[in-house]
């Protein structure tokens, strides 16, 4: 028996919004420790890694590990039927071929359930090596989303250069070029608005804007985002999900021939 309960459906809605642009379907691996998802997008350029810890749920029970393959468009249709403040419970029997979502309104006067067929996705898992990154940038997630959205208008590729002075995002295309420089802030009062950079050595890497735009669909999950970079390895864009876990996106760089 698997059962996981969250008092606010809003969180699960946001999680789904954060992955469904990159993935059509995904396997949710459920175990005693929580729910994990790891999947590449169709082009195998990016990888999504989601962890929802069991202790972050209001109720969590997983008697036997199970993998639930879900069509994310179908899951999205179901979650749209929940109000943000509904309690949501995800349930499945051991070896089941369906999963059930139960939504309960705050006053319990409305209870709905939606059963969805599971899929056999046979997704491969990749080993993600531990990396000591050359640069780790932390900034407001809204600021990152704004920069990516603004620059993507002017080209397909963004060059991210990080030095100890700051981080520069540059794009060039048919119209011309655009640069956004962010300096490290010393704004200790407003930590949430600060930009911080931990740098071992400077890094310059190029990435496809379209994937960064997809990653910023996670913005509602967290006020902060962390970008981790080292030369010639994938960028990691991480959003913490308060008291529940995190979503990490890995993006393969564009490299010279």
């Amino acid at each position: 028996m698997f059962e996981a309960r969250l008092t606010s459906a809003a969180t699960l809605k946001k999680v789904l919004e954060a992955v469904k642009e990159l993935l059509n379907e995904a396997s949710f691996d459920c175990s005693d420790s929580g729910i994990q998802l790891q999947a590449m997008d169709n082009s195998h350029v990016s990888l999504v890694s989601l962890t929802l810890r069991s202790d972050g749920f209001d109720k969590y029970r997983c008697d036997r590990s199970l993998t639930m393959g879900m069509n994310l468009a179908s899951m999205s249709k179901i979650l749209k039927c929940a109000n943000n403040d509904d309690t949501v419970t995800i349930k499945a029997q051991d070896d089941a071929d369906t999963v059930t979502f139960v939504f309960e309104s705050k006053k319990q006067e409305k209870i709905s359930d939606y059963e969805m067929k599971l899929m056999n996705l046979d997704q491969e898992h990749l080993g993600i090596p531990e990396t000591d990154f050359s640069c780790v940038i932390r900034m407001p997630s809204v600021e990152f989303a704004r920069i990516v959205r603004d620059l993507a208008q002017f080209g397909e590729t963004v060059l991210i250069c990080c030095t100890k002075e700051g981080v520069k995002f540059s794009v060039s295309g048919d119209v011309g070029s655009a640069n956004v420089k962010l300096a490290q802030t010393n704004n200790f009062d407003k930590e949430e608005e600060s930009v911080s950079i931990e740098m071992q050595e400077p890094v310059s890497l190029s990435f496809a804007c379209q994937y960064l735009i997809s990653f910023t669909k996670a913005t509602p999950l967290s006020p902060r985002v962390q970008l981790s970079m080292s030369s010639n390895v994938p960028l990691v864009v991480e959003y913490e999900i308060a008291e529940l876990g995190y979503i990490r996106y890995y993006l393969a760089p564009k490299i010279e021939d």
Binding site: V45, L47, G127, P129, A252, K254, I255, E256, D257
Partner: peptide, 14 residues
């Protein structure tokens, strides 16, 4: 010019 690499060239199958 630059080419898009893939995740599979950095992370290996488990």
């Amino acid at each position: 010019d630059k080419n898009q690499s893939t995740i599979g060239s950095f992370f290996k199958k488990k």
